[in-house]
Structures are given as C-alpha cells and as structure tokens.
C-alpha cells in the first residue's frame, strides 16, 4: 500500500506537469509533439531490458526480446522522425 501511494503520487503530479507543459506547445508543432511524445512512451524499453536480461525461462526471454525490439522501434523511430520534421521549420 505504502509504495502504491508513493507511485500514485508520482503519477498524478507528473500528469499535472504534463498538462501544464504541453498546453504551452503551439498548434504549429502539434505533429512533432505527437511523434516526440510517442518516442518518450517507448520508455517501456527499460522494463523490457530488465525482463530480457534476467530471463528465467525461454518464454520470458522471447517475450522480453520482442518487447525490447518494439519499444526500441518506438524510441528510435519517434525521435528520428520528430527531428526530421522539426529541422524543416525555418524562419524567413
């Protein structure tokens, strides 16, 4: 229960930080915001690495490997495509 409340506190506060910061992103950058936040959601790769790295059975190893691959696609694809888009935004 104790750890859950701590985690929940972090979750709720981070949600508020998210609302505050993201409402300030102008509509002109909403597509890069979506793809960039997508890359951040690939943070699951941390959990995937731990599962794969400590695999107890062949099954958990397989699930972990797939998870690492999927999450890394998310991370690398997300940040790279965001960079590609943002680099096109130029001033006169």
């Amino acid at each position: 229960m104790e750890t859950f409340i701590t985690s929940l506190t972090v979750f709720v506060l981070a949600m508020w930080v998210g609302f505050e910061v993201i409402t300030k992103v102008p509509p002109i950058l909403h597509t890069p915001l979506t793809s960039g936040s997508n890359a951040v959601s690939g943070i699951t790769v941390l959990g995937a690495m731990v599962v794969l790295g400590s695999m107890a059975t062949g099954l958990t190893g397989t699930l972990g490997f797939l998870a690492v691959v999927f999450a890394t696609i998310n991370v690398v694809g997300g940040f790279m495509v965001t960079h590609r888009m943002l680099a096109m935004f130029k001033r006169k």
Partner: peptide, 16 residues
C-alpha cells in the same frame, strides 16, 4: 508498437 511493448513486458513479468 508502444502498446505491444507494454503488454509484452506485463506478461513477461508475470511469467517471470
């Protein structure tokens, strides 16, 4: 892919 990674980690953790 992000969603898939989450469901795989959840399942793998349980089996683990």
């Amino acid at each position: 892919f992000g969603g898939a990674a989450s469901l795989l980690v959840g399942g793998a953790e349980l089996h683990q």
